[in-house]
């Protein structure tokens, strides 16, 4: 019996969300007296895979098939299913990314397993049950969910689990390949267009996020958001009306109808804090609100607040951040 973790690569390295999943998987394995194996596909370098040992992973199955450099759902599912069979995996762990939740859902059908996405805790396994807590109602509540099937599939929410940094262990990397049919490539992308993300920080993966709302008045003022983000190594985000008016691209829109993020630090500038906005950011660890209106609802959800004009306050923050020694 083993716990199998799927890790995703990004420009050859392993995504932080996948390191969290690996740490989660090895903690589950320890609790169950099992071993934790990882499976990686496509564009990841072997040195990064070996470092998964630091997360408690003993072995990595690596499928370097060139056709799998980009995500192809059915082919990835076939590889992971084959790895699960080889390792006799009863617990499969993913990070709760679009890729992780997609392959997780498909595998739940294929392996007849129980699936929980958006998971925020390690499982409780008293009395032979297997129960995890997941985020529901757009971050407004949690549910303890019992996974009743023999095979348990978990997608771990970003920032719910700490990456372990202490052990110097390395994992052994084994080449692995599954037999793939043409049908597995039926939905392969015709074309992939990447945004030119400045600084290269993906919003869903970001540890820090600086976000702007309608209070910034117009796209010409976004240098405030961008400069602060750059100074602290953050990704940029925005509220819905900002992307609706095309001040910023849609993929930056966070909230109920945008993306959900849970960074360590979320700085909201000129955002009122409507409940639909909070739904996308309320599981951030530390929330900072800058708003000229002391009654803005966002202050109720904040850890730090500044009542003031963004056009005066933010330049001071940029200056102070630049002065920090890195």
């Amino acid at each position: 019996m083993s716990v199998l973790v799927f890790v995703e690569g990004l420009n050859g390295e392993i995504k932080n969300s996948s390191l969290e999943a690996a740490s989660y998987g090895s903690q589950v394995a320890t609790a169950l007296g099992a071993t934790a194996t990882a499976v990686a596909i496509g564009d990841v370098n072997e040195a990064a895979l070996a470092r998964l040992g630091e997360q408690g992973i003993s072995k990595v199955l690596f499928d370097a098939d060139a056709r799998l450099k980009q995500f192809v759902a059915d082919a990835y599912v076939a590889v992971i299913a084959a790895a699960a069979q080889k390792e006799n995996a009863k617990v499969l762990v993913f990070s709760n990314t679009g890729i992780g939740a997609t392959v997780g859902s498909k595998l739940a059908v294929r392996l007849n397993g129980s699936l929980a996405t958006n998971v925020t805790t390690l499982p409780k396994t008293e009395g032979g049950t297997f129960t995890v807590t997941r985020s529901v109602f757009s971050g407004k509540a949690f549910a303890d969910v019992e996974l009743t099937a023999d095979v348990k599939i978990i997608a771990v929410k970003k920032n719910a689990i700490d990456i372990s940094r202490n052990s110097g262990n390395t994992a052994t990397v084994e080449n692995f390949s599954a037999s793939l049919a043409d049908a597995d490539f039926a939905v392969a992308p015709k074309e992939t267009v990447m945004q030119d993300s400045e600084g290269g920080i993906l919003l869903p993966e970001a540890e820090r996020v600086v976000s702007g709302g309608r209070g910034l008045k117009g796209p010409e003022n976004w240098h405030l958001v961008e400069d602060l983000a750059k100074a602290i190594g953050a990704a940029t985000a925005c509220s819905k009306p900002v992307s609706d008016q095309d001040w910023r691209p849609h993929h930056e829109h966070v909230g109920q109808t945008g993306i959900t993020i849970s960074p360590n630090l979320y700085i909201a500038i000129g955002i009122s804090g409507a409940i639909q906005h909070l739904a996308g950011v309320n599981s951030s660890k530390v929330i900072v609100v800058i708003n000229k209106d002391p009654e803005a609802p966002f202050f109720k959800a904040a850890d730090y607040g500044i009542v003031g004009d963004a056009f005066e306050v933010v330049p001071k923050l940029i200056e102070a951040a630049k002065a920090l020694d890195k």
Partner: peptide
């Protein structure tokens, strides 16, 4: 069904917001 919900809970309330004087905004950093 392959899952069942045992219980719901709500997130812990935030400890309250710490306000910073806008004149000394840099202190936030």
């Amino acid at each position: 069904a392959k899952t069942s919900i045992a219980a719901y809970s709500k997130p812990e309330k935030k400890g309250g917001v710490k306000m910073i004087d806008p004149e000394n905004a840099g202190e936030l950093i």
